Computed example of a mutant assay.
Amino acid sequence: MSQTTPTPEPTPETLAAPSLEHICDLAVTIAPPVEVGHTPSGLRRMIPITGGVVRGPRLNGRVLPGGADFQLIVGQGTQAHLDARYVIELDDGSRVFVQNTALRVTSAEDALRIMRGEPVNPAAVYFRCQPRLESSAPEWAWLAESQYVGTGRRAPDGVFLSFYRVT
């Protein structure tokens, strides 16, 4: 009977942190919320997206009307889990599908202000997102070959976002 020498466990290593490349900023216009109400999962709302502008070093165009942000509000109203889906039409006519999931966390008082459409100090709100981008245009194929993160700010009349490519 032969004995085998155990294989040593690999040693974890800290890899270099990724960097971020700013690709664009969005100013998204919205319509009043459509309230679904309190479900077993939490408060559900749908915010229609009516348009917007996209400007930045890598993407420029407009947000087409017709998208929506589906929201699940939990934690006594302090946490909003967001799932927005919409289309950007770039300046060259190409279209980009965006699915942007996000987490917005703030105090109960500021959450009520946001729900009523009132301004809230952006420093009091944690708003981070993970957009996914894809296009059928060959020159924009690179959009689906990277991961993205972003920051957001909710205003009474819209949402402002900045998207960054993780490099």
Rank of each mutant, 00 (worst) to 15 (best):
L133W: 00
T29A: 03
A27H: 12
Y86F: 15
A84I: 08
N100K: 13
Y148N: 02
C24H: 02
A84E: 10
V36I: 15
P32C: 04
A80M: 15
S146L: 00
L59G: 10
A27K: 07
S135C: 11
L15W: 00
P6S: 03
G56A: 12
E13M: 01
E139T: 15
T78N: 00
L82P: 08
R44K: 15
L59V: 08
P65D: 08
G66A: 07
D92C: 09
E21Y: 01
A144R: 04
F160R: 10
E13K: 05
L143G: 12
L161M: 04
G158M: 13
G67T: 09
R44F: 12
Y148L: 04
A137I: 13
F97R: 12
V98L: 09
A17Q: 01
R95W: 06
T11K: 02
H38I: 15
T11C: 02
Y86R: 02
L15R: 07
T101G: 06
P6G: 03
L15H: 05
F70N: 11
H81P: 01
P32T: 05
E35L: 14
A102T: 06
R95L: 13
E134L: 13
G75C: 12
G77L: 09
V87I: 14
G66C: 09
L64V: 06
E13F: 00
R95I: 05
G66R: 11
L72A: 11
D69P: 09
Q147Y: 08
S94Q: 08
W140D: 04
G52Y: 12
R154C: 03
A27W: 01
G61F: 01
C129E: 09
T39G: 10
D110R: 06
Q3E: 07
Y86I: 06
S107Q: 12
G117Q: 13
L64A: 03
R128I: 01
P65L: 08
P131Q: 06
P12Y: 00
G67F: 06
N121C: 02
I30Q: 02
R55Q: 12
P40K: 10
V120G: 03
C24N: 10
E13A: 11
I73Q: 13
V87A: 11
V96I: 12
T167A: 10
L64E: 11
A111P: 14
I49S: 05
A31F: 01
T4F: 03
T4M: 13
G67Y: 02
L133S: 04
H81N: 14
F127Y: 12
T78M: 14
G52R: 04
V74L: 09
T7Y: 05
P8E: 03
E9V: 00
L59H: 04
L64F: 02
D157C: 05
V105W: 04
T50E: 09
S41F: 11
